[in-house]
């Protein structure tokens, strides 16, 4: 082992420690009996029990899940259409604007996206009366808008890598172009669509800033609830909630990684 690889290995070790130690500590402290979150008071699972009795958290979690399921599905439909248009329809009017609009939401700072969508909803309400109140509907629309960009990019790059003569062959054999999309294109990009859906789902569950802008009174998503609690400092029941989320997502990601690896 030479000097260079020793350096690389130490940086890797430090980097992974940097990424994971904070998470591990949150998990450890979630089993802390003490109600002062930073002092160790013995092992206990009492905070998990409190979590289950907290209706506010359950309501917020339920709202977040509903938004995530709906917006991920809408984002997948719209994003797939956008990816198809960008990868397969070479020339159409307004293409440059379109591809610019697709990727921009991904890189736009959240405060700007949130503010601009809220102002849109307020303006629309003045003009048309819709949306009457902000909450599930407005957050879902906001999440769909920024996560469809991710789906579109994933689908587009899958399509770029795919042999276009597959679709031409189907057309050559008598498949009408629209039929060909369902016979050939969609089955082949299905893995990309699933990946896009999962990403959109997670992004929606994760979003705090945009939801804070476009939600109305009385509708708090899970991140909004967590934020309102942690603003006041470290708290043990949030440790427990964080542990559940971290474990749940880690297991999910690990499983899909194992499945994907076996298929390759």
């Amino acid at each position: 082992m030479n000097r260079q690889s020793r350096f690389i290995i130490s940086v890797l070790a430090f980097g992974y420690a940097f990424l994971y130690i904070p998470l591990v500590l949150v998990i450890v402290y979630s089993f802390n009996d003490s109600s002062i979150a930073t002092v160790w008071g013995g092992f206990s699972t009492r905070w998990y029990g409190e979590l289950l009795r907290n209706d506010q958290i359950l309501d917020a979690a339920l709202l977040s899940l509903r938004i995530a399921l709906t917006s991920a599905t809408m984002a997948t439909v719209l994003g797939t259409m956008a990816g198809l248009a960008l990868a397969r329809f070479r020339r159409f009017r307004g293409r440059t604007l379109f591809s610019g609009m697709i990727t921009s939401p991904m890189v736009m700072p959240e405060v700007i996206t949130g503010l601009s969508l809220l102002l849109l909803f307020v303006t629309l309400q003045q003009l048309t009366g819709w949306p009457g109140q902000r909450g599930f509907g407005t957050i879902t629309i906001a999440h769909t808008t920024f996560s469809m960009a991710y789906v579109a990019i994933i689908v587009q790059s899958r399509l770029m890598a795919m042999d276009e003569s597959l679709e031409e062959a189907a057309m050559d054999l008598g498949g009408h172009p629209l039929r060909v999309i369902f016979d050939i294109t969609l089955p082949l990009i299905a893995p990309a669509m699933i990946a896009g859906w999962l990403l959109a789902f997670t992004l929606s569950l994760d979003d705090l800033v945009i939801a804070s802008f476009v939600s109305g009174p009385g509708s708090s998503t899970l991140p909004m609830y967590i934020f309102s609690k942690v603003k006041l400092g470290v708290s043990p029941d949030i440790n427990a909630l964080a542990t559940l989320i971290i474990l749940f997502i880690s297991i999910g990601v690990l499983l899909s990684w194992l499945v994907a690896r076996r298929r390759v």
Binding site: P22, L23, V26, T38, D206, I226, V230
Partner: peptide, 26 residues
């Protein structure tokens, strides 16, 4: 995978984790 994993875990919770770490008694 270990690089991507934190990306899937809530951004807010990852920031929160540092609150416990950097506290005066953290």
């Amino acid at each position: 995978l270990l690089i991507i994993l934190p990306f899937w875990i809530s951004f807010l919770l990852r920031v929160y984790a540092w609150m416990g770490l950097m506290n005066n008694y953290g």
